[in-house]
Design a binder for these strands. Structure first.
Length: 587
RNA sequence: GUCCCCAUCGUCUAGCCAGGUCUAGGACACCGGGUUUUCAUCCCGGCAACAGGGGUUCGAAUCCCCUUGGGGACGCCA
């Protein structure tokens, strides 16, 4: 009574189970090369669960020297938008998931949009009809669904108007005849789940072409996977139960079966399947919350898979080398966030980013992001964090703020110009006031327009190891751009009102005002000497200064902070606290 | 409701398929200590799990059964 595909279709086993790896080897028979695909639907956002699926496909293709195909599953024309497709392409690129064939890349098996393949589906459908494996039929009067089912669908967010509309469609649809003769059980071996079987009575005929002539998912997918010669179908576990349906289609079409590998689901911290409405699933949210793509990549790859040893922070290449379908877990993994409050279902993009930003601290993803952030060369960090700095409202404008101009001297030799350039650069590196000067307007001579980001880079380098996300970093550098708006009352009480805090601040002001060398080393030395002469701990001097400069008793090393603020600004801030002594505490 | 799947610290997981080497390992988080001018980093230490119950076995986290819990599928969505 068992389906007899075992012998004809490699990858399918009906008896004598073998190790999965053996099946993988056999599968290379019909498919000379490894070809995998990621087939997202253009819904307007790229889902983190989808990204993980893409990652595993990517690993598999790269490891075996195969081809990674990107296909857009847009059979539901009503929802197709070019913009929605672009979101997917941008998201994949941002993640570093380059595809070999598909949109923008082309390939020998296109088109890679299902929406452009309708003629092909119709032709295959006709072929099936001619072979007696499909028939046109009108849906019977939509029978009332059981109440439990409606409720469940609504609860899962899967109850929509489409359903009602479809039921009302008067046109006949083309049904695939599931059982050509006797009902048969379908058995196959999934590369991660092992043997999977579906009894015959569970497998009924199903629609492959809708009343409007468009293909359904289960049909279009199979036709495409055959046409594109996909050797391994690696996708979410929610497709596992549909696989037997598809297997029968492969058989009816006389095509060799790909190896199937189903990935465990990703759940939220409430053990629910992560959903667009109540969870932050769009990849753009992570980008905007300051998560680095390489960190998200690493984190997602470890959801449901591990290399088997204790490695966690791994490069893409290391993970690719270690990847193995057999090492994928079966149980769903939680994508846990430290949610302080629920995410409103109607929350907008900005609100979701804010929510994510405050739900990230304490999570492994945030920690991992911090690790990647720390390793970033400062030049690259500057590039990445720049949009966040602009967003934070700091007085920065790329192309103006960071450029200083060397006055043009007629007839000057290149050597002289170079000397002048070096001098100006050295000065600009040290002085934020010059750094911030707007000198827009001359970009004819590259030598005369120099990007001076030395100051900014030094600021970023200081806060780099104190931050875990780009967004957090952008917040942490605020004290270098704006004087404190208020002073932390506890800090004032603890560091100024006690232990001669005010006296030390006065002394430090005098000392700094007279300082001729404003380098970090000199400042540190001077402050140290003062503290020693008073027999005070360094902190007794440093903390009052911190409060003056930052408003809070937290900052990078005090001498670095002073140096980067510049003498004028530093003294201004110290004087502001001194003059407001009586009302230093914010209202 | 029917069918199928899953189950190790709060979380991600190693171990399971080929029982003993597991008083169950690593990481995040948390707590404590050390280094440090604060914060961060770094170092050291701690807390913390085999869902429950049967069975097989000299021996079970590992194999079998049941229960419980969770998930998925059952659509002219993908």
């Amino acid at each position: 009574m068992c389906l007899s595909v075992g012998s004809r279709f490699p990858g399918v086993q009906t008896s004598s189970p073998r190790p999965v790896s053996a099946v993988n080897r056999i599968s290379k028979g019909p498919h000379m090369s490894v070809r995998v695909r990621f087939a997202p639907s253009p819904t307007g956002y790229l889902h983190v669960g989808g990204i993980r699926t893409a990652i595993f496909n990517y690993f598999f293709a790269r490891k075996l020297g195969g081809v990674f195909v990107l296909r857009i599953d847009d059979t539901d024309i009503k929802r197709h938008h070019d913009e929605a497709v672009q979101v997917i392409l941008d998201g994949l690129k941002w993640m570093g998931l380059e595809w070999d064939e598909g949109p923008e890349k082309g390939g020998a098996y296109g088109p890679y949009f299902q929406g452009q393949r309708f003629e092909r589906y119709k032709a295959v459908a006709k072929q099936l009809e001619d072979a007696g494996r499909a028939y046109w039929a009108k849906k019977e009067a939509p029978k009332e669904l059981p109440a439990w089912k409606i409720e469940k669908l609504k609860k899962a967010g899967k109850w929509d108007e489409d359903r009602a509309e479809a039921a009302a469609d008067p046109n006949p649809a083309l049904y695939f005849k599931f059982h050509p003769g006797e009902p048969k059980e379908v058995v196959f071996r999934d590369a991660v789940w092992g043997e999977y079987r579906r009894p015959a009575e569970m497998l009924d005929d199903y629609v492959i072409l809708r009343g409007d002539g468009t293909p359904t998912y289960n049909f279009a997918t199979v036709v495409d996977d055959i046409d594109m010669q996909i050797s391994h179908v690696i996708r979410g576990e929610d497709h596992l139960a549909n696989t037997p349906k598809q297997i029968n289609l492969f058989e009816a079409l006389g095509a060799p079966l790909p190896v199937f590998a189903h990935l465990p689901m990703i759940h939220n911290d409430k053990a629910q399947k992560i959903s667009k409405r109540r969870d932050p699933v769009a990849v753009t949210l992570y980008r905007d919350a300051g998560i680095l793509p390489e960190a998200l990549f690493n984190f997602l790859a470890l959801l449901g898979w591990s290399p088997g040893d204790d490695r966690e922070l791994m490069s893409k290449d290391e993970m690719t080398a270690a990847f193995d379908l057999e090492r994928i877990k079966h149980a769903p993994a939680q994508f846990a966030l430290a949610r302080k409050r629920d995410l409103a279902e109607d929350a907008g993009e900005a609100e979701r980013v804010g929510w994510l930003h405050e739900s990230l601290p304490g999570t492994k993803l945030e920690w991992m992001n911090g690790e990647y952030l720390k390793k970033l060369p400062v030049d690259e960090l500057l590039e990445r964090v720049f949009p966040f700095l602009v967003n934070a409202g700091y007085p920065l404008r790329k192309g103006t703020y960071a450029i200083f101009t060397l006055p043009h001297i007629e007839g000057e030799s290149e050597a002289d110009k170079q000397v002048r350039f070096d001098e100006a650069l050295a000065k600009a590196e040290m002085e934020p006031s010059i750094f911030r000067t707007d000198t827009s307007g001359t970009d004819s001579n590259p030598l005369e327009n120099v990007i001076v980001d030395g100051w900014l880079k030094r600021v970023l380098a200081l806060e780099q190891e104190r931050s875990r996300t780009l967004l957090g970093l952008a917040e942490n550098v605020r004290l270098f751009f704006e004087p404190p708006k208020s002073y932390d009352s506890k800090a004032v009480a603890k560091f100024l009102e006690k232990n001669d805090g005010w006296a030390h601040l006065e002394a430090a002001r005098a000392l700094l005002g007279a300082a001729s060398d404003w380098s970090p080393a000199a400042l540190e030395q001077a402050l140290n000497a003062y503290a020693e002469s008073k027999g005070a701990k360094f902190g007794a001097v440093a903390q009052p200064l911190r409060v003056a400069l930052a408003g809070v008793p937290v900052s990078p090393p005090i001498h670095d902070t002073l140096a980067l603020l510049g003498k004028d600004e530093a003294l201004r801030r110290i004087d502001a606290l001194r003059s407001g002594r009586g009302k230093a505490v914010p209202a």
